[in-house]
């Protein structure tokens, strides 16, 4: 049974995640605060803009976009860089490398339990609340299917980037600096903090050629598009699939090369 070992890791992850209930409560409070600030900030922005539609997005659109971006962020943040960095520093990585599973896969699957808990505990409730509060401003149709496919690829791209950046820790032994740089770049250029539509023109076009917009912008714009044109859907998903494969190969290759670099203290 090939799948069984992965499922076991997922189950262990779920059990582990459910142990930390307080962190969950604090996280929910943190998100609520963030959303309150975002709500009032954008309300003020739309009030001073004088029009209902700014850069092709209404206040409702923007709010749904940002709320779901936050929910997606919680869902996708895997702290991979920290995990790899810490494992390198403590030497625990040696034990993980000896496991009869590729390190890249092991790390992913041991985290996958959190995906499950996060999906049911944060993303789904947020999604339902948003749909109810905005009186069905979120279109429920075929776009949900595209969204799910898109999110799966987004998770993969995000993980590949994380793993790639985590691999750099093998060389630098610096975690904080590397991680903060990655986080800042990904959050800004993926459209997680500000919708891509608000970026000034040359910058916006440039961002479509980077992998980051496939993480947040692509799934969210597919979700918010109630009347998807086959062409847009195909381009978006195609672009994601391309980045998915490219980043996967890149991170795998880089890891393979870097593994020869490894020096472990004690362990």
């Amino acid at each position: 049974m090939k799948l069984k070992k992965y499922i076991t890791l997922t189950r262990a992850g779920i059990i582990e995640a459910l142990q930390f209930r307080l962190s969950f409560v604090v996280m929910v409070i943190g998100n609520l605060l963030y959303l309150i600030v975002v709500y009032f900030l954008w309300k003020a922005i739309y009030a001073s803009a004088g029009t209902d539609v700014v850069n092709g997005m209404t206040f409702n659109d923007t709010l749904i976009y940002l709320v779901l971006a936050t929910a997606l962020f919680n869902f996708m943040e895997m702290y991979t860089v920290w995990e790899i960095g810490r494992n390198i520093q403590s030497g625990k990585i040696v034990l993980d490398l000896l496991k009869p599973m590729e390190y890249r896969k092991y790390l992913f699957w041991s985290y996958s339990g959190t995906f499950v808990t996060q999906f049911f505990l944060t993303f789904l409730p947020t999604f339902i609340v948003v749909s109810v509060v905005t009186h069905g401003a979120v279109p429920l149709g075929i776009n949900l299917l595209y969204f799910v496919i898109s999110v799966v690829m987004a998770v993969s791209i995000n993980y590949s980037i994380d793993f790639l950046v985590g691999t750099i820790c093998l060389y630098t032994e610096s975690i904080w600096g590397i991680n903060i740089m990655k986080q800042v770049i990904v959050l800004l250029l993926s459209g997680a903090t500000i919708p891509l539509a608000f970026f000034p023109e040359p910058l916006r076009s440039a961002m479509y050629y980077l992998p980051f917009q496939s993480i947040y912008n692509a799934p969210l714009s597919l979700l918010l598009d109630g009347d998807p044109q086959p062409q847009t859907v195909l381009t978006t998903l195609g672009m994601q699939a391309m980045w998915c494969i490219f980043m996967l190969l890149l991170s795998k290759g880089f890891w393979k090369v870097s593994l020869r670099q490894i020096t472990v203290n004690g362990g």
């Binding site: 630098t172 032994e173 610096s174 904080w176 600096g177 590397i178 991680n179 903060i180 740089m181 800042v184 770049i185 959050l187 800004l188």
Partner: peptide, 16 residues
């Protein structure tokens, strides 16, 4: 190296 990377990271945060 850690010091330089962290400083660059901080500058990144501010610029972003």
């Amino acid at each position: 190296a850690d010091f330089i990377i962290s400083t660059v990271g901080m500058i990144f945060t501010n610029i972003s």
